[in-house]
Design a protein around this nucleic acid. Structure first.
Length: 492
RNA sequence: GCGGGUGUAGCUUAGUGGUAAAGCUCCAGCCUUCCAAGCUGGUAAUGUGGGUUCGAUUCCCAUCACCCGCUCCA
């Protein structure tokens, strides 16, 4: 990969080719928000389709769902997000460095806890007042901190146009909870049997304290998540299974092997409910060659379904407190929670249990960008630089360009007819402007894998040339075989 | 949120306290039978808001956005 060595190069490429624009750019932009342009939306849609095909369509044991972004507030009480999806940050008055207070330590030489889970806001605020002996990890100053500043990472909004009558809701910070909330519905309506999964692609929102780095961490982003429900005791094998499945998905779609790796989470880095977690990381080509997380695969145990059983028991308390989440406490788990409303009855073994959950959760925006930069290439052809995107045909925004070699002798008419026929089956682009070489190069830049050209011979024997993006080689093909030829290349 | 940097046409760059320049791209036309050819013409820019000034793209202030580093990162 040549020349694409800085984030700026990638941003520039994305804008130049119509993949990704700054949101609200004509108004000076809006931090952390980005729009997908004409090629970008095709690319991203194809990435999502490829995920859905691999995770849902090709499997007998996974079904799909599409949940609303707004959900009952108790969902977030039960999931823990309302109380715990938050950080307390204090700023060193001496050097202005901000540090999460749970990362602060008393003595300078203690090893810092690199990753700890988010903390319960209320409890931490009460217990965290005394920072007088804490040491700033940046400059070493002792006890020189501002008051801790709380950050809740969930977006709030209001439902109901009438102000007096409106209810505060949260924009979902993950799509997963919609799946857990529908576990019973899916079970009752689709004859699925454990082990099985429910998959969803959709937008999520997090008020990240810092964003930065283009679309790697944005406050509005799209996730593709699978919650795979299995019997306790089988969770480890399913964890391994999905780990492998998901890693291969990226490779099959063309990501170079040397740019992809797993990163296992350390025990102390795991969320409190997780038994295991591994990230799929991609080595982006800029800066120091940072490995960035594309996807996390976690063993969430039976935590989520058990929590929602507690949430369901809390409903009355919620009504009694007029929906004020801060005034209610999640009800304790029932003694016989294993037989609760979100449990599963195994007919063969005549046993009832709360399923364990394996969760592969992929960032669609990050993945799309990884596919884009991984496909980027420059090469020398006859002293000229050829820029191209070597997309897998499955995710290429345009599958075929259709050209008349020259604009006469009936060639445009034939090319038009071919274009009109093929566009019913896949994205095509018709171009009759300028020299043929220029048209090929334009498609190279968009990552179009095939170009079909009508020439003088076509009028005699109904064959055309079809040119390969990567090798620039051409073969002749009968026009009635074009559809089959291209479609075969689009399947994985 | 801190420190540093950047912001001129779609892209890459030039330049100046006094009419903002070029290459590529793009568009129109001519010409073209397979890889960014050539010719002619054309569209198009100083992020936003103030201030200083006769006059600001240039100097100053603010603001927005992006990049680098710190910080942070279910």
């Amino acid at each position: 990969m040549a020349k694409l060595t800085k984030l700026e190069d990638i941003v520039s490429l994305c804008k130049r080719r119509g993949f990704i624009f700054q949101s609200s750019e004509i108004y000076g932009g809006l931090a952390s928000c980005y729009d997908y342009g004409p090629l970008g939306v095709e690319l991203k849609n194809n990435v999502k389709k490829a995920w859905w095909k691999s995770v849902v369509q090709m499997r007998d044991d996974v079904v799909g769902i599409d949940c609303s972004i707004l959900m009952h507030p108790l969902v977030w009480k039960a999931s823990g997000h309302a109380d715990q999806f938050a950080d307390l940050i204090a700023e060193c008055k001496k050097c202005n460095t901000r540090t999460r207070i749970d990362h602060l330590k008393d003595k300078p030489n203690e090893s810092a806890e690199e990753h700890t889970e988010h903390i319960a806001l209320a409890a931490a605020a009460a217990g965290a007042q005394d920072l007088s002996r804490k040491v700033c990890p940046a400059c070493g100053a002792v006890g020189n901190f501002t008051q801790p500043m709380p950050f809740n990472l969930m977006f709030e909004t209001n439902m109901g146009a009438n102000v007096d009558d409106s209810m505060t809701l949260f924009l979902r910070p993950e799509t997963a909870q919609g799946i857990f909330a529908n576990f019973r519905n899916v079970l009752d309506s689709t004859r699925v049997k454990i082990p099985f999964g429910i998959a969803q692609i959709g937008k999520s929102f997090r008020n990240e304290i810092t964003t930065k780095a283009f679309i790697f961490r944005t406050r509005e982003f799209e996730q593709a998540e699978l919650e795979f429900f299995c019997a306790p005791g089988t969770d480890d094998q399913w964890f391994v299974h999905w780990k492998q499945q998901r890693f291969n998905w990226y490779l099959n779609l063309g990501i170079k092997k040397e740019n992809l790796r797993f990163r296992e989470h350390e025990k102390d880095e795991l969320a409190h409910y997780a038994k295991g977690c591994v990230d799929v990381e991609y080595k982006f080509p800029f800066g120091s060659g940072d490995w960035q997380e594309l996807e996390g695969i976690a063993n969430r145990t039976d935590y989520d379904l058990r929590q929602h059983q507690r949430g369901m028991r809390t409903l009355n308390s919620w009504y009694e407190n007029k929906g004020d989440l801060s005034k209610i406490k999640l009800k304790e788990e029932a003694e016989d929670y294993l037989k609760g409303p979100l449990s599963y009855f195994d007919d063969e073994k005549k046993s009832r249990f709360i399923p364990y959950v394996i969760e592969p959760s992929a960032g669609m925006d990050r993945s799309t960008l990884a596919f884009l930069v991984d496909a980027y290439d420059e090469e020398e052809v006859r002293g000229e630089t050829r820029n191209l995107l070597r997309f897998s045909p499955a995710i290429a925004p345009i599958k075929a360009g259709v050209f008349p070699l020259v604009n006469r002798d009936g060639m445009p008419e034939i090319a038009r007819k071919i274009f009109d026929d093929l566009k019913k089956y896949f994205n095509c682009f018709y171009d009759d402007k300028g020299a043929i070489g220029r048209r090929y190069r334009r498609q190279d830049e968009a990552g179009t894998p095939f170009c079909i050209t009508v020439d003088g011979q076509t009028t005699q024997d109904n064959t055309v040339t079809i040119r390969q993006r990567d090798s620039m080689e051409q073969i002749r093909l009968a026009t009635d075989q074009l559809k089959t030829y291209v479609r075969e290349k689009l399947d994985l």
